[in-house]
Design a protein around this nucleic acid. Structure first.
Lengths: 210, 210
DNA sequence: GGAAGATGAATGAACGTTCATTCATTGTCA
DNA sequence: TGACAATGAATGAACGTTCATTCATCTTCC
């Protein structure tokens, strides 16, 4: 409506605001974060936010959009990994940022909480999830390791399980003590990833009966 | 402090309020729910809530406590199931209540979101999780099916995977369309449960090499 | 009568949002 | 080039609203 066009000059300001919003949202949650919090974190005035976003709701939506793009970039990196295991490792540790551990986990859990009552956010989140799952399904179908899965699971079933575990571990991440470093979180994630991988794709030449 | 003793007469009122709070919290989230919303849902006055809870924070904490008790009851039911698979099925479908589907899922996702920034809620949630995981670990150790797991996973590893999948599926539940019934949600959960079970415990006499 | 239960109008702080105003930058014309 | 006009990004005080919390008042029951 009254928002300016999203050209390159505006894009900077927008992402500056979104960056600040991410920090605030992760720290306090969507609805406990005030517009003043965001403006303070971004080092700008409150009013300026309204030049780039129609209202607070629009900031939340834009964050969901941004999350979608980040997931797609993550998926691209996973696609280029040399092995299926390494793809999964990228998928499972994408949220363990060196600086700011827990930040993304907290944001994503909040995003799902928001999705449970905001249909627009729910649509966006579902869309992100389905795109990502399709990507992983493809990855499995293409990879040589992906062929001989234990049990008779379809690539769909396998992708669903993988994403359930990934989401579940992300949820666990917000419960972990604040003192835990990104490296430690990462290591925990990797352990689970490798266990799941062995379970799903049994690489050591083991063969299931039939 | 100024709260009355929690004797049997007060307990009724308290759970009436908590019941109403669960509905409101699931519908709008902790921080978008006003005390007036809760009093309206419970059919009592605002002021009365403050006779039974010190403040809004205390209502949230009490909800977390209640959740702990419900998880423990669920675990007790799981313990009495005749097979390990059936125990897992109880564990994975506990949130699919006949009336009010999504209600518990939305609450739990919100609980984790709250835990990410409220240390008291985080401690409570961690405690619930650890108790429940210990229970399932025991269940696995006792069950005959639990002995021959695929791969060389410890009961600890298996329990961690099971809970990750359960949490992840619960998170997915809030993304499902509102139109989906409790029975449909339940069926989806059961499919995933059985797939995971087959993967973990391979019941059909199949044996992994070595 | 009085103790405990229950009410809901009142309070004040905090919030999202608006908008009159400032001012550095850019464009215009001699 | 220099004087002046126009722009619109940026500010932050102010507004109307909502909310958690309080408390004077009323009801109930022994």
């Amino acid at each position: 409506m009254s928002q300016p066009q999203i050209d390159s000059s505006n894009a900077d300001r927008r992402s500056q605001i979104l960056e600040a919003a991410l920090v605030c949202f992760a720290k306090r949650g969507f609805h406990q974060t005030s517009m003043h919090d965001i403006s303070g974190e971004a080092g700008i005035s409150v009013g300026l936010i309204y030049r780039y976003f129609e209202n607070k709701e629009a900031v939340i939506s834009a964050m969901a959009d941004r999350h979608k793009e980040e997931i797609q970039q993550m998926l691209e990196r996973a696609r280029q990994a040399p092995s299926l295991l390494e793809s999964l490792e990228i998928l499972f540790t994408a949220h363990c940022c060196e600086n700011e551990p827990r930040l993304i986990s907290a944001f994503v859990v909040d995003l799902y909480a928001e999705a449970s009552r905001n249909p627009h956010v729910a649509d966006l989140t579902r869309d992100v999830l389905e795109t990502a799952m399709a990507g992983v399904r493809d990855l499995i179908a293409r990879a040589p390791e992906g062929q001989n899965t234990g049990s008779n699971l379809t690539p769909d079933d396998v992708a669903e399980l993988i994403f359930a575990v990934a989401r579940g571990m992300l949820m666990l991440d917000v419960l972990r003590p604040h003192e835990m470093t990104a490296a430690e979180r990462r290591m925990r994630q990797l352990e689970v990833t490798r266990r799941l991988w062995r379970l799903l794709f049994k690489p050591e030449g083991e063969l299931t009966y039939a």
